[in-house]
Nucleic acid binder design. Sequence first.
DNA 1: ATTATATACGTAAACGTTTACGATGTCAAA
DNA 2: TTTGACATCGTAAACGTTTACGTATATAAT
Lengths: 339, 339
Amino acid sequence: MSVTLQDIAQELDVSIATVSRALRGMPGVAESTRQLVLKVAREQGYYPNLAAQQLQRQRTNTIGFIIPTFGPRFSDPFFSELLAGIGNAAAEAEFDLLVSTVAPGKDELKGYQHLVAGRRVDGLLVVRTRRQDQRIAYLLAEGFPFVAFGRTDQELDFPYVDIDGQQGLFKVVTHLIERGHRRIAFINASEELMFAQHRLTGYRQALAAHGLPYDDDLVRLGGLVETDGYHAGRALFCLGAQMPTAVCTSNDLMALGMMRSARECGLQVGVDIAIAGFDDIPLAKMTYPPLTSVHQPIYQIGRLICEKLLCLLRDEELAEPQTLLLPELVVRESTDYRV
Amino acid sequence: MSVTLQDIAQELDVSIATVSRALRGMPGVAESTRQLVLKVAREQGYYPNLAAQQLQRQRTNTIGFIIPTFGPRFSDPFFSELLAGIGNAAAEAEFDLLVSTVAPGKDELKGYQHLVAGRRVDGLLVVRTRRQDQRIAYLLAEGFPFVAFGRTDQELDFPYVDIDGQQGLFKVVTHLIERGHRRIAFINASEELMFAQHRLTGYRQALAAHGLPYDDDLVRLGGLVETDGYHAGRALFCLGAQMPTAVCTSNDLMALGMMRSARECGLQVGVDIAIAGFDDIPLAKMTYPPLTSVHQPIYQIGRLICEKLLCLLRDEELAEPQTLLLPELVVRESTDYRV
DNA sequence: ATTATATACGTAAACGTTTACGATGTCAAA
DNA sequence: TTTGACATCGTAAACGTTTACGTATATAAT
């Protein structure tokens, strides 16, 4: 089996307490014996049993991250980049990362309870917050450390990082209005998602600021995958005279689906219709035509929420518990079309 | 703090052993007391301390998965789908999933040692195998349970799932040849990756089978991101008379970059040049033009390697330790061009 | 020489489980 | 009544650490 403190202690004929102290650099052990211990530990290939450490120290050096996955073909470039940010920040702090994938729903909380009540992780990262978010209510009630990516509609105080989706939509819609568009569609995400709410607000504000009417028919809801954008496009482009001249979407994936349906309807993107996305995934600049999008520094956000959580776990005061990032609009050829 | 067996035992004036037995459904406890224990446990909100369980049971009910990330903008739809498959399969078996993100390199093994020597996980999933893979050599030497996605060049016996990339490339190149192409470029991944080797073999076999010469200039290496395909394209499309009429790539992301560079060089994809990818990510059918690609059932592969590992951990005999999946070619408009 | 202080180390309890083993009580068979 | 079998439960060790506390020795101060 694997070598324990006991093995080293036996070999050197000292107590396991001394071995433990020597290995952890604690005072109260002679330099000569410390060297001996280190030598034997190296020779025997000692590595501490993490479960035993966790039990004793009452912390796991692990943070949890639960990915809400929707169905099998869950392929969102967004998450791999977020995960990279989180993972790298955690690794630098020598923390492990426990990832669960659960579909949002009534069993969702079970996943959180497992990690929280089982003291499986020291803190949690919550992503894709909802307007009424039971996960956040639960974590607050438990007094469990967490940081969210996104806000909620409840008047709850908790640490988060978010990008200002309202500003983001305001910018992109204003950009479209400045290019002469008057009928601008918006493919949003499910209403229960908090960011969808913010972005809708930004959309309406931009219209209002330019005296344009709000038309319910032009706002569609999608599930953030390509096919949602595709189907929304098929519906929109059949409106005839009522057809929008520009469309913006709540993520790039749907924008790509939208571009496809536009082409199928004989519309040349950037020439006959303007399309803009949200996220600015690396792919956005590679599409045809390159996609105008609201940039989200996803990797950085991943790092940020992770680092904030690590601060919390070190009992440090958060310099900025709530961070709201201003997104930048990246204009590309997909919105070249002017009315 | 949180409630332990001790708390329940005290409340009912029984021993913690009885409580433990009652909760775990072990024999040797009266049905009446079992009900009492269950009742109190529910009332007090008992949840077992997982670290203590792990220490005692000598297993963690956790599997590890180390994602090789290359740089910050690591945005591969491939991995999010794989992760979903792994995560869901693990969740069904009530296993947790520990994810690390480490850049391949000399510190890479540290990450594996941490999980293995620290007994942090019961088994590991190894992805993106390399021709000489130190990770696999290490795990085999340690006798640690693992399943790989991919093979190696070493004559080592270990459980894996892989798709037959050689067949995949053979199919796509044959498809291009049948459309009249004679100069077919191939943007492959780094030579050290095992799958790159297989695909190169498939590429050469298809050429040979049709009596076409192999031209070193037409094979380029890329790092599997969009920009790699883009740059490879810029280089290829400047070859003048030596220019290929068709290109296939080792993943869809590079194909998308390639499509962009083609357009910038005034080439209409599917009309003036044929481009095919590999992976068939959901996006592939949404590009313009839709991308011909070799389909990989990534989600299923994620499930498969996870389930295989779970079998190993249950000490079951693997019905099929090594699975080689035959990939399908999905023909779309990007290869419509005939010479 | 005595006392105080520091250093080096061991003892043992603790973290929260699981489980082998032993103790007690009940009931039926001999 | 004795014996055994069985059900029910408690005791205690074990998993591998960490750490408060105690003890022995050496050194310095009085």
